[in-house]
Amino acid sequence: MGHQPSQHIIEYKTLGLVFIALLAMTGVTIAASTIDLGKLNVWVALLIASVKGSLVLLYFMHMKYESRVLWLSFLTTVFFLAIMISFTFWDIAFR
């Protein structure tokens, strides 16, 4: 414990399944873009991209098996990104 934190081995099978899921979702996002949902299209595309990104983060980047410190620091980054995005739109909306 502690000395070799990343000794968790993710099996080829798990990685392969994640890869197939990512390919499938790429297909889904392309298919979704052919249907006109109005303003919803952007949100659907972003939602699928976020799920794909989470898979890459959790399995390919081993985040699922990382320490709490790393999780916390990552979530802090996402929090600051959210502030940047929301405050910008807040400013734009009330100009």
């Binding site: 392309i30 052919t34 299209n41 952007v42 794909k52 990104g53």
Partner: peptide
């Protein structure tokens, strides 16, 4: 870099 492309792809190529 892959993660960033996952967001670039729908934003530029799939805007409808």
């Amino acid at each position: 870099v892959d993660l960033i492309w996952i967001f670039i792809f729908p934003l530029f190529y799939l805007v409808i």
